[in-house]
């Protein structure tokens, strides 16, 4: 049994991969709580696609991936907010417009670069086995910054997530918080793409938080549970991926989805009887 757990750690790629996956799971779990409760679940999906355009542009301009994609993701999230705040269009339409346009730009540029095909596969579906120590350092840094921001502005973020109108009435600096959240979200999505890929990042933003919501009626407990579930899913997904030889990103997401189904069944039977 112990050998079962230890064996994958003989390989450096697995050690790097599981470290990256665990921190990505924790980061997406942390931010996912706010996103799910604000009913903006499609933002993760949209931003991941938007960042793809930024990644291609930064590749063409020969600039650092993290800098180019971060800038692109941040601008995209600000644009989404700008469009959705004009009342006539909701956040869902704004996300659809900005992110698909950005993704389309990336695809259009790639069609002009024939040697880009391998990289595009890694970007779309993730390449956790190609994680480098630099990637891990970036992922851990983004997690630490996200954690610090949530810690320092927890009360403000809670108020904003609960009800933006009331938060504004009490002079909570909503605009500044939205910008800060957009920044850390864009950074988190970008570092997650390496592990999960553009197409699967959204799932890990939504699934751990949704699982946590089924288990508790308390906001702060939901945050802890969501982070914990994100870590467990990443850990379990990496092991299953190793032993069954399936793509890691997909396995992590499938495990999270399986957990959600199990919890849904459990909670539907106990919903009115257990004290949460």
């Amino acid at each position: 049994m112990i050998a079962f757990f230890i064996e994958p750690f003989h390989y450096q790629f697995f050690v790097y991969g599981i470290l990256a996956a665990v921190f990505v799971g924790a980061t997406t779990g942390l931010l996912g709580t706010f996103i799910v409760l604000r009913k903006m679940s499609s933002i993760g999906h949209g931003l991941a696609h938007a960042v793809f355009g930024g990644a291609v542009v930064s590749y063409l301009l020969n600039t650092n991936f993290y800098i180019g994609a971060s800038l692109w993701g941040f601008i995209s999230s600000l644009l989404i907010r700008r469009i959705s705040s004009q009342n006539k269009l909701g956040a869902d339409a704004a996300i659809g417009i900005v992110t698909t346009a950005s993704f389309a730009l990336g695809v259009a540029l790639i069609s002009k670069i024939p040697y880009f095909t391998r990289n595009i596969e890694a970007a779309l579906f993730g390449n956790v086995l190609g994680v480098t120590p630099l990637d891990i350092a970036v992922i851990v840094s983004v997690f630490a910054i996200t954690l610090l921001c949530i810690f320092l502005f927890y009360r403000s973020f809670l108020f904003l997530t609960f009800n933006e109108e009331i938060a504004r009435a009490y002079k909570v600096p909503v605009e500044k918080l939205e910008i800060l959240f957009s920044l850390i979200l864009a950074a988190s999505i970008i570092v997650s793409i390496q592990v999960l890929g553009v197409t699967l990042v959204a799932a890990m933003v939504v699934l751990p938080a949704s699982c946590a919501r089924l288990l508790t009626n308390s906001f702060h407990r939901m945050i802890f549970l969501s982070v914990g579930i994100g870590i467990v899913c990443s850990f379990a997904g990496m092991y299953i991926s190793y032993y069954l030889d399936i793509a890691s990103g997909a396995t992590i997401v499938l495990f999270a989805a399986f957990l959600f189904v199990v919890l849904s069944i459990y909670c539907s039977n106990n919903f009115f009887s257990i004290q949460k």
Binding site: R155, S156, F159, F162, N217, S218
Partner: peptide, 16 residues
Amino acid sequence: FPTTVEQIVFMGIRST
């Protein structure tokens, strides 16, 4: 929204 009565009232405190 996952919040209790006391947490709602706490929201008014030091949230700016």
